[in-house]
Design a protein around this nucleic acid. Structure first.
Lengths: 203, 203, 203, 203
DNA sequence: CATGAATGAGAATTCATTCAT
DNA sequence: AATGAATGAATTCTCATTCAT
């Protein structure tokens, strides 16, 4: 038993994750989670306010990471993206994506494919909206330093590329590719995005 | 009666569509559909076998169209894709996508965002799998005529691009862009895809 | 088509018989019967008052036959049963049973195994009660002519033997034995019954 | 509360038994059972998975007993049946049957007359098939020790006698005879069966 | 005779959550 | 912290029957 220390909360979370992955949020029942956790149904409510809270707590680390990535990569300080030849920066980003996929495979699956019915069922959409704001601020910031840069990019383009990023994640999660292949896929993807955006913004 | 007799089936379908769009398949209840259609709940079952059948009947025309497109654009006869300069073919495809978006906006919304719980909840995935098969057959066919073409493309790439196509649809549906903009977005997308694939296959 | 003459009532009866045999009375739905008869559901009600009426009409000939047999074999006139050596009478009875099984196999199946939920669901019990009355009258009648006969037979015995007769029918119906075997089984059964009863009544 | 806590399961079972006896399995509704048990309908599902499970749990002890009897009375060890004069064995068997009737009257009623629609609706038939197998094995076993015994008995005969045993039970249950009478009826029945079979097998 | 439409009651089952202990 | 019991609203689907035309 890994749960010798009677850390029941974690115990429940693990059980919930299993069940949420088997079914989805909506179809997973508290009874099933309780059974899986060897815990009374009602006892769960001593640790979590609702089924939704369990799901949220489970997925929280992933959400935090995603948001950190969003803000870090579009902070005012970040100008590396403009540097065509910064292979170091490129590989940094690739690593970031790669470790996201590797470390959060299960949670990504939960968030992207099994969240229906929870309060996070529209997370992708909300993240996208946030993205638009953040990215546009970032553009403005950059524009101050490189005034002849074209930042006249449609909201739609930002949306689409955010969505495509998610789609890439989804496909990478669905398929179990070899780590080396995953790295290459991501590298190609990032390269493509960087060059595409640079072209678009005519730096 | 504002509804013509004999149109009750259509009446129900319209009501169902409204409700399915408000909620999703799972959360939409027969009671709600019945109310919306000004019809007794049980009476619906004189026209449709189940909630799932209603959804399916609703979405069927879209599915048919999608599948026609898949097969038509990858039929052995189609070699226009290879022709870099065939603007006519390009605009044909663009029109096809454009009219899909315009004519099936609601149904696409249903199929892509509101199908959870129905038998079509995995339609995208199934279509993708089908795509892989069809596309690979298409490649083999072309290879016979252009033997020095590289058709060594990973399944993952085909998956990803199919998924991206769906993502594009999804984003186009979510946002209500002006028709002119939509046309341009699609044109850019198709152009990008064509050149990308040609490059990949080194024609 | 055997129903060219548009004899719809018979048509419905045939369809109903099929359906009642597939499912049982309770689980058979009017819709299913209507479909099988290629007739509108509501049209059935132009020919029959209710589902129960259909079942009854279907099974009526069998019921009539059973009751005729009961009365004929226990009419005052019948004294052959007392005659130990009347092989002719024995074979008459055997033929009677045999032809019942052969001619009414389907209806017997309906009545014995598929009547649950209909007004005939307790037919066996009712027949048994009737049997007791009839048999006792018969005994009294015989007693007048053979005063030293013992007719002090418990109701239970009459019940049991009636029930066993039904059980024999049921088993003969369930199994598809060869006609020759069926004849032998019945002969043995009747012989056994006759000798048993004669012994009991110490003629 | 007139019902002891922790006895709710039993409480429900008692209520269900009453209702199942009033109506039959199919027509008995959970609502009725719940009302009878002074319990919320949905609460029943905290104790039983389904209506069928309630019925099964109710009838289980009877089924176990019937199967024990079948196996015990046809175990290889049992040779008493061959012994014409073993009055002790006879009375053993009679007691067995008698106590079955007395102890399981209600459950027998449920199983034989009210099981329609439950998963046990064909129990008699299934038991009969099992009987045939068990009895034939038993015959083979005996044949090894008494080689000149005739065990060439048709399946139909075994079926019929099993069915007749059930019919006897059914009639004994339906009628409320005095215990003394019941004992006599059973004794006569067993005696008849034993002598019949011995005759058939020409020991 | 035939039909399409409608109905209304009723079925089993599910489930997140609450509460008293 | 843990438990057993309870709840009540909701859900899909079934079906015999009726009725106007």
């Amino acid at each position: 038993m890994q749960f010798l220390k009677d850390n029941i909360e974690e115990n429940i979370l693990n059980a919930a994750q299993k069940v949420f992955l088997r079914k989805n949020f909506q179809k997973a029942s508290m009874r099933e989670i309780a059974d899986e956790a060897h815990v009374g149904v009602s006892n769960i409510y001593n640790y979590f306010e609702s089924k939704d809270c369990i799901f949220y707590k489970l997925v929280k680390p992933l959400i935090d990471t995603l948001e950190q990535m969003l803000y870090k990569n579009h902070s005012g300080k970040n100008k590396d993206f403009l540097n065509k030849n910064s292979d170091i920066y490129l590989s940094c980003i690739v690593d970031e994506y790669l470790s996201l996929i590797q470390n959060y495979r299960s949670l990504l699956t939960l968030l992207f494919f099994h969240a229906q019915g929870s309060s996070l069922e529209n997370y992708k959409e909300e993240f996208t909206k946030q993205s638009i704001t953040v990215v546009k601020k970032y553009f403005l910031h950059i524009k101050q330093q490189y005034p002849n840069m074209n930042i006249n990019v449609s909201d739609f383009s930002i949306r689409l590329h955010t969505a495509w990023m998610f789609t890439l994640f989804e496909e990478l999660i669905k398929q179990r590719n070899k780590p080396k292949d995953v790295r290459q896929i991501i590298t190609e993807y990032i390269t493509f995005e960087f060059t595409g955006w640079r072209e678009l913004m005519k730096i």
